[in-house]
């Protein structure tokens, strides 16, 4: 460390910089075993589902469910493998003391611990990352203001309750069911992570598109008798069923 010089330095312009709190939604890769071949296969599948989403996408590696008594010798190889699939691992979460040291050597950040925040309002949003839907009960996301054209709402891991309307050009999605009490003129997608048991309950149906677990119908193909009325939509044997409420 050199001593600070005694001659005064010309003042530097620091106003060109700003340190702010950023907020990002990051895909998280949960690793429970160090079986590299299996992980490679898993990543191939994930990228195949959403290729452009994962290209140069930041990723957090979650080690909280990795058995703490097992050494993670191939951690550097795993990080390299993830990079090979185009993703950019930026940090680890739930790491043990040794794993943190490994992360430091690999220049990965230590991410803050997991919080049980259940739902997100995103505008604009990135598509949801496919992962197992957990069984635990979660309270619905309740939206009491109109959803405007171009906005997207995603109720992650729970149902969505809409107390005001959904404008044409807006998109509302839920892992669970959607309950809409206001007029819906936009898109409604329930059960987005292949939850075929999800339903849509809508008091004033004029949606541009309705979908449950990926099976969809556009407005033109909705049964005319339900337009402007209360309707329940469910999925039975891969087909959308409409019933008056």
């Amino acid at each position: 460390m050199t001593q600070a010089s005694s001659t005064p330095q010309p003042s530097l312009d620091l106003s060109a910089f700003d340190m702010k709190a950023g907020q990002f939604t990051l895909p998280t890769l949960l690793i429970r075993t160090d079986d590299a071949d299996a992980l490679d296969q898993f990543l191939v599948q994930q990228v195949a589902k959403l290729p452009h989403f994962f290209e140069q996408a930041p990723l957090v590696i979650d080690l909280s469910q990795f058995p703490s008594d097992q050494p993670l010798d191939c951690f550097p190889m795993i990080v390299g493998m993830i990079r090979g699939h185009g993703m950019v691992p930026v940090g680890v979460r739930g790491a043990s003391q040794e794993q943190r040291e490994q992360a430091r050597l690999l220049e990965l950040a230590i991410m803050p611990r997991l919080r049980t925040s259940q739902a997100q309002k995103t505008d604009p949003a990135t598509p949801p990352v496919a992962a197992a839907v957990t069984e635990q009960h979660r309270n619905p996301l309740v939206v009491d203001e109109p959803v405007r054209s171009g906005q997207r709402i995603y109720a992650k891991g729970c149902d969505l309750v809409l107390l005001a309307g959904v404008s044409s050009g807006a998109e509302v999605m839920a892992d669970g069911s959607i309950h809409a009490y206001g007029p819906v003129r936009g898109r409604m997608l329930a059960g987005v992570r292949d939850n075929t048991a999800a339903r849509i309950f809508c008091r004033d149906m004029a949606a541009e598109l309705v979908a449950i677990a990926g099976r969809y119908r556009v407005n033109e193909d909705l049964p005319k008798r339900h337009l402007g009325r209360s309707v329940q939509i469910s999925l039975q044997e891969n087909a959308l069923q409409f019933a008056s409420l």
Binding site: L50, P51, P127, G150, E208, V218, N219, E220
Partner: peptide, 26 residues
């Protein structure tokens, strides 16, 4: 973000996928 060609053409009730979906390979 401010589309209206579909309204003027009268096909706004048949839109499933759009230009951005195609560009992004979706």
């Amino acid at each position: 973000g401010l589309r209206n060609l579909d309204l003027i053409m009268g096909c706004e009730r048949r839109v499933v996928f759009d230009f951005v979906n195609v560009i992004q390979g979706e």
